[in-house]
Nucleic acid binder design. Structure first.
Lengths: 130, 130
DNA sequence: CTGAGTGCAAAGGCTTTGCAAACCA
DNA sequence: TGGTTTGCAAAGCCTTTGCACTCAG
């Protein structure tokens, strides 16, 4: 791997990135796999995980864990957070939370160098409230 | 189980709660298990998980997942968050973050009823910075 | 051509389950 | 006693690994 993050194009990688680009919330490996099958892109499960690792290392996708015992992946977007419904399990992105100030505070007070943060709100989504 | 959260006392439950009370950051099941062995409290691994489920349901302990592929448990404390070092994996509690306002905003704007939130900061702890 | 990427099959880590035995109130 | 809790062993789920084969560049 050269320094400028050059990498080989393969049908698997192409398809996975396209799927992730079409999603607007983090999805799990099984979800991606189903989409691959629908698109008639046959790749092995192990390969899928390797592709996901690869893009995560490249900084192209983010990896999350929402207390479900599995990982979720999302194309890297700006600073944003998630709303997770405890009734139906749906997950929604939410933008523009100002946590940066908090990070600065922490670095100052705790001498902990904050690289990134993860903020999730658990509750009940609009349709489950009815 | 009656309504007032009454429950039976057993040596396993006692020991698990005591261990969690002595910790100041979330620990995983294996960590608790080791402590049980040290204390010569022999309980089965399956039982440990059942005890942890039980106390979580009772609202006495919190369950977290910090992108490690496993759960962590902590005695319920007030609103607080976590600093997770990506170098050594150490986890520290941090108090007094004012996310409540954000929650109100979300409920208003998104019609999402926020029950709780989870906020973790990933970075480098003080000793790993040296 | 040649290293990077893949498929296959198997194992791995963590957690859960079924069922019978043991236990607390 | 009677329902709760436990132990044991096995399975479950998600993910990772080793190795040989294939492919992109």
């Amino acid at each position: 791997m050269s320094l400028n993050a050059y990498f080989k194009k393969t049908k698997g990688r192409d398809a996975v990135i396209k799927i992730l680009q079409s999603e607007d919330a983090p999805v799990d490996a099984a979800h991606i796999y189903e989409h691959l099958v629908k698109k008639h892109v046959s790749i092995n499960q192990a390969t899928l995980y390797r592709i996901l690792d690869f893009f995560t290392d490249q900084g192209m996708i983010d990896r999350f864990e929402f207390q479900e015992g599995k990982q979720r992946f999302e194309i890297v977007r700006g600073d944003h957070h998630h709303l997770i419904c405890e009734m139906c399990g749906c997950i929604e992105d939410i933008e523009d939370c100002n946590i940066k100030d908090l990070e600065k505070d922490i670095t100052k007070k705790k001498k902990f160098l904050v690289k990134r943060h993860s903020l999730e709100f658990y509750g009940v989504c609009q349709s489950c409230q009815r």
